[in-house]
């Protein structure tokens, strides 16, 4: 998808088959990106089609708002989701979001999109049971839109610039909200310097997802120790280009969250507890250092439903987690 073009089709089926043939989809059917729909999406974000959302210099790629809008339509987004997609694209195309590496890597890294702020509830972004999907339109289509931009605009096409050995189903779409209502914890975007009323997305490059189950701990410290053990079993190598700002995202599940809130632990308390333990020297192949430069680099997100004594570790690829405000044209809307 390199230039705006008008194509006429006799039927929806013919359009979809042609898109498959041209390699413009992720292997699933898409919605037709008609000019009127693309225009409507741009209007919802208050953007002109030529607005540049970001670039991938190594690929000679310039991503415009029109291209993002076309892919958001194709992904099945509603127009009101588009400002979120714009923010996610901007975050992913931030230089330290490292699009070229994270979408081309043999390891098949994915992009996790975390949504914060009032827009979650306006758009019905799932943050509770089943929030990693499938089943929720906003989550599914916003995450898919970013992936379609990566494919159709940033040229992250399997076998071409995407060299993943296996890839991951998380690349179809991986987007969820933080369950900000679950406790008085500072939401992720507030921890990263934004106002609570300012909606935002955080895009995190995801090398590996690990479920950190712990059914037996009955207190915050016990949960933290199991998180440390699970992260250190994998290790985080760190990277000099990222410096001291590397990230890991820990999605604290409902059952674990309870212990933290009962004992009055803030996110900052968890960061301070985990950080020195993650950075302690390795003691063997199954206990490796997890290099996170600062406690604040450990990003804590509350999400998920009741039942499992589990949290999820979103271990990073070679990029920073980038938080980007969601901007909408009406000043009272975001």
């Amino acid at each position: 998808m390199t230039a705006p073009a008008q194509h006429a089709y006799d039927s929806y089926e013919a359009l979809v088959e042609d898109y498959f043939e041209r390699g413009w989809t992720d292997g699933l059917p898409i919605m037709p990106p008609t000019p009127d729909k693309v225009a409507m999406f741009l209007e919802h974000a208050g953007l002109s089609g030529g607005e540049v959302l970001g670039t991938v210099p190594t690929r000679e790629v310039i991503c415009t708002a029109e291209q993002a809008a076309a892919n958001a339509v194709m992904a099945g987004c509603r127009p009101e989701y588009f400002p979120v997609v714009v923010a996610a694209v901007r975050a992913h195309l931030h230089p330290k979001g490292n699009c070229h590496s994270t979408t081309g890597t043999l390891s098949g890294a994915a992009q996790a999109v975390v949504i914060n702020g009032p827009i979650r509830n306006e758009l019905d972004v799932a943050s509770g049971a089943g929030c990693f999907g499938p089943g929720f339109r906003a989550n599914a289509t916003i995450g898919r839109a970013l992936r379609l931009v990566i494919r159709n605009v940033c040229r992250g096409i399997p076998g071409f610039l995407d060299r993943a050995s296996y890839s991951t189903p998380a690349r179809y779409s991986f987007c969820f909200g933080e369950n900000e209502e679950a406790s008085d914890w500072a939401p992720l975007h507030v921890q990263r310097g934004l106002d609570p009323e300012q909606s935002a997305v955080t895009v995190h490059s995801l090398m590996k997802m690990v479920e950190a189950t712990d059914f037996t701990s009955r207190n915050a410290e016990g949960v933290c120790e199991s998180l440390v053990a699970n992260i250190r079993a994998n290790g985080i190598a760190g990277d000099s280009w990222l410096g001291e700002d590397g990230n890991v995202v820990i999605v604290i599940g409902h059952e674990h969250h309870r212990f933290f809130t009962e004992e009055g632990w803030s996110k900052s308390d968890i960061q301070q507890y985990l950080w020195p333990r993650l950075n302690a020297p390795a003691t063997g192949a199954a206990d490796r250092m997890a290099r996170i430069g600062k406690p604040e680099g450990i990003l804590i997100v509350a999400a998920g439903g009741a039942g499992m004594g589990a949290s999820w570790l979103l271990l990073p690829h070679l990029a920073l987690a980038i938080t980007e405000p969601i901007r909408r044209p009406r000043p009272d809307a975001c």
């Binding site: 059952e255 039942g307 004594g309």
Partner: peptide
């Protein structure tokens, strides 16, 4: 209900 957790890995 709580304090018993939903998965019965109980002492």
């Amino acid at each position: 209900n709580y304090p018993w957790v939903p998965i019965a890995i109980w002492s």
